[in-house]
């Protein structure tokens, strides 16, 4: 039976998590990651003077703390009311993920942005957001109504093909994080964009051509396709704005805006690809 408040709460958590991704992106783009040299307190306080880079770094910590508390409540709520054992375990796993994410964030400060830790922090943020979106999906009334199974007649089998989209998108996000934290250059990320976009096109068009009449599948595929197009545009804009402001003495708002939008839309792309994969595997025989 649907628990409408649990679902609404899950949606709120997902929205807060997307906002957290934006806040994290602002920290990196404004080069403010080490503007607060201590952790978990900021300048030894719960609330430092919010100026310059401190606004972004401590603001990110405040949003992260809020998301952490919201996740604790969600995990407890799921544990108490959910009949599905795997959902209770997913709640616990989500809580573990947000704790790990907080510790990774602390390590980036204490060890002064070691690249593997910073990249892991960025990647786990994307995975965590997708997980919150999945919980919102799994608690929705439409999910609890059960699947509308359709037969798949095409080749390759859609149930196998659809897995490629989130895999490629996640690898692409990791390449983006690696470029952002200067572990790799931007070329692997640009090459990855072509591959990931191609795979998303292949998957979504396959779904649309084979199951255009299936409401859930069509909407999921159109959502992924639309977000991916937006993401490609934002990627080009972020790159061009970075080139245009490369000699600037400080991060410029144009570059920061496009880059953070690109990061946030990346999170949406991964979540949309995960949702499509889940829906296809649930609704396609």
């Amino acid at each position: 039976m649907s628990n409408v408040w649990l679902h609404r709460y899950s949606v709120i958590l997902a929205i807060c998590t997307l906002f957290l991704v934006v806040a994290g992106g602002l920290v990196t783009s404004n080069d403010a990651g080490l503007s607060v040299p201590d952790w978990p307190l900021s300048y030894g306080k719960l609330m430092p003077v919010m100026e310059g880079g401190i606004f972004y770094e401590h603001g990110h910590r405040m949003v992260a703390t809020t998301v952490g508390f919201l996740t604790i409540i969600l995990a407890v709520w799921l544990w108490r009311v959910e009949n599905r054992g795997w959902m209770r375990r997913l709640g616990v796993g989500t809580l573990a993920a947000v704790i790990a994410q907080g510790l990774l964030g602390g390590m980036t400060v204490i060890y002064m942005l070691p690249k593997p830790v910073s990249i892991s922090h960025a990647c786990l943020a994307q995975l965590f957001f997708s997980t919150t979106v999945c919980i919102a999906l799994f608690t929705s009334a439409s999910w609890l109504c059960g699947p509308h199974v359709a037969a798949d007649s095409g080749t390759p089998a859609l149930r196998a093909l659809v897995i490629a989209a989130p895999l490629c998108v996640f690898i692409q996000l990791a390449l983006g994080a690696s470029a952002r934290h200067k572990f790799l250059g931007v070329l692997p990320h640009i090459a990855g964009a072509a591959v990931a976009t191609g795979v998303v096109l292949w998957v979504t068009l396959s779904v649309l051509m084979r199951h255009a009449g299936h409401d859930v599948l069509r909407k999921s595929a159109v959502a992924l396709l639309s977000i991916t197009f937006l993401q490609v545009f934002l990627g080009i804009a972020a790159y061009m704005s970075r080139i245009a402001t490369i000699d600037a003495p400080q991060p410029m708002p144009l570059m920061v805006g496009f880059t953070v939008a690109h990061v946030a839309t990346g999170a949406l792309t991964l979540a949309a690809s995960v949702v499509l994969a889940i829906q296809v595997r649930r609704n396609v025989a």
Binding site: N30, D31, A32, L34, S35, E51, G52, G53, I54, P251
Partner: peptide
């Protein structure tokens, strides 16, 4: 040498 609070400082 930079200041992360004020990203123009170098």
């Amino acid at each position: 040498v930079k200041c992360n609070v004020h990203p123009w400082m170098r």
